[in-house]
């Protein structure tokens, strides 16, 4: 494992931690998209089916379990916690799942490296992860007063993706025969989706202003 990959995973972990802490400390999930969290849950479930079939390393197994458990915790809080669920912006979080899930599923059925259930679901998770942030970005755009922590959460998620690109470049240069085109293209698409957000995040940070995204 190289430094970019480790830094990427740690940033991913930190992003989830920030979200858990924000919701738990403020007892509010204002500005957080339940749709994005549920899409991530679907991504993790489909991708980590190999927890049962394929042991890679202790690190790998523990991280997978943390990602699954933390995402399901957030969903549980947003749906069922008696204080937190009241703060969910249900009317604003209107992005439709099917617009993301169906195209990704079709693409995974058509474009995969092996036509088996495990492989198609794994590929589906790669495609879906690339676009799963969209409901969150739309919700942020509709939220007038973006919570610092919610902004940081999205920024950390975007940074994790950027670090993964560096990881791929590093691996491509150091490992013979290392190539994975589907993952690379999806990962690049995913990172591009964050560029607009990054622009406004850095601008607001520089000017010491509260983050707001233009409609």
């Amino acid at each position: 494992m190289n430094i970019f990959r480790l830094a990427g995973d740690m940033t991913h972990l930190l992003s989830i931690l920030v979200l858990l802490l924000k919701i738990n400390a403020t007892r509010s999930c204002r500005g957080v998209s339940l749709k994005t969290q549920e899409l991530y849950a679907l991504v993790f479930v489909c991708r980590y089916l190999d927890l049962f079939t394929n042991f890679i390393s202790m690190y790998n197994t523990i991280m997978k379990i943390i990602f699954l458990a933390s995402t399901f915790t957030i969903i549980y809080w947003m749906r069922f916690h008696k204080v937190i669920r009241v703060t969910y912006d249900r009317e604003q979080d209107t992005f439709r799942y099917q617009f993301l899930v169906l195209p990704c599923l079709v693409l995974a059925l058509l474009l995969n490296s092996e036509f088996t259930v495990m492989e198609v679901l794994w590929t589906f998770s790669i495609y879906l992860e690339a676009v799963a942030i969209l409901p969150q970005l739309v919700l942020l755009q509709r939220t007038n007063n973006i919570d610092n922590l919610t902004g940081n959460y999205v920024f950390l998620l975007g940074s994790y993706r950027a670090l993964y690109i560096l990881n791929w470049i590093y691996r491509f240069l150091t490992e013979p025969n290392y190539r994975q085109y589907l993952v690379w293209i999806s990962g690049i698409v995913q990172t591009i989706i964050y560029i607009d957000f990054f622009y406004y995040y850095i601008k607001s940070w520089k000017n010491n202003e509260k983050l707001s995204l233009p409609a």
Partner: peptide, 10 residues
């Protein structure tokens, strides 16, 4: 081969 390599990432 491609799929196997990718699966050590998260």
């Amino acid at each position: 081969v491609q799929a196997l390599i990718a699966k050590d990432e998260l």
